[in-house]
Simulated scan of single mutants.
Amino acid sequence: MYKGQSGMWSWLFHRISGLGILLFLFIHIVDVSMLSFGPGVYNQSVVLFDYVVVRLLSLALVIAVLYHTFNGIRIMAIDFWRKGSRYQRAMFGIVLAATIIVFIPMAYYIMGPAFQWLTQAPHAATTGH
């Protein structure tokens, strides 16, 4: 047993992120199948994606995909690079750092519309009408 070292956490996060991506796939299939009920039903179902809770779930999906991708590259490096197992702890740190660095601008893009009310000025007060 790894007893809490980077290999155990890497394995656990990889499995959790993979299950999260699989769950999203099922939700995506249901979402796309709404088209078969007509454009009105589909448009009503897509409105759900504007809720803050759903945007947070989208963020969870983004971080799961990013981590799963970068960690998959790390796993391939360990498997195919002779010195890969020696540097697996450092590569785990790189995976976490890369995930966070790429995630931050995506989080801003996804959550930005949910906080539009913070940036909008009241038009009656600013225009004088």
Rank of each mutant, 00 (worst) to 15 (best):
residue 36 S to L: 08
residue 106 M to G: 13
residue 29 I to D: 00
residue 118 L to T: 04
residue 120 Q to T: 12
residue 28 H to T: 10
residue 29 I to F: 07
residue 97 A to H: 02
residue 59 L to A: 01
residue 125 A to T: 09
residue 92 F to S: 07
residue 119 T to A: 05
residue 37 F to K: 07
residue 40 G to A: 09
residue 33 S to A: 14
residue 44 Q to K: 12
residue 94 I to R: 03
residue 113 P to Y: 01
residue 113 P to I: 00
residue 48 L to N: 07
residue 84 G to K: 10
residue 33 S to C: 06
residue 75 I to S: 08
residue 101 I to R: 03
residue 63 I to D: 01
residue 38 G to F: 00
residue 11 W to Y: 14
residue 71 N to T: 05
residue 86 R to K: 14
residue 95 V to A: 04
residue 126 T to P: 00
residue 12 L to W: 08
residue 26 F to W: 11
residue 96 L to W: 04
residue 57 L to C: 10
residue 117 W to S: 03
residue 98 A to V: 13
residue 62 V to R: 01
residue 51 Y to I: 02
residue 5 Q to K: 15
residue 84 G to E: 13
residue 42 Y to R: 09
residue 95 V to F: 08
residue 87 Y to E: 09
residue 89 R to E: 13
residue 2 Y to F: 15
residue 87 Y to D: 11
residue 128 G to M: 03
residue 75 I to G: 02
residue 124 A to M: 04
residue 112 G to H: 10
residue 115 F to T: 05
residue 119 T to L: 08
residue 127 T to A: 10
residue 14 H to P: 06
residue 95 V to K: 05
residue 18 G to W: 04
residue 53 V to Y: 10
residue 74 R to H: 15
residue 75 I to Y: 13
residue 120 Q to M: 13
residue 113 P to G: 00
residue 25 L to T: 13
residue 117 W to A: 02
residue 82 R to I: 12
residue 75 I to P: 05
residue 77 A to G: 04
residue 72 G to F: 08
residue 68 H to I: 00
residue 32 V to G: 00
residue 91 M to V: 10
residue 34 M to A: 07
residue 129 H to E: 01
residue 123 H to C: 01
residue 27 I to M: 09
residue 100 I to M: 08
residue 56 L to V: 05
residue 27 I to A: 11
residue 103 F to D: 03
residue 70 F to V: 11
residue 126 T to I: 15
residue 43 N to K: 08
residue 68 H to Q: 08
residue 28 H to P: 00
residue 1 M to W: 08
residue 129 H to R: 05
residue 84 G to N: 11
residue 56 L to Y: 08
residue 66 L to N: 08
residue 34 M to V: 06
residue 111 M to H: 04
residue 17 S to F: 12
residue 85 S to C: 03
residue 110 I to D: 02
residue 2 Y to W: 15
residue 94 I to N: 00
residue 115 F to S: 01
residue 74 R to K: 15
residue 8 M to D: 11
residue 30 V to H: 07
residue 123 H to R: 09
residue 111 M to V: 04
residue 102 V to L: 13
residue 55 R to E: 01
residue 51 Y to T: 09
residue 64 A to N: 14
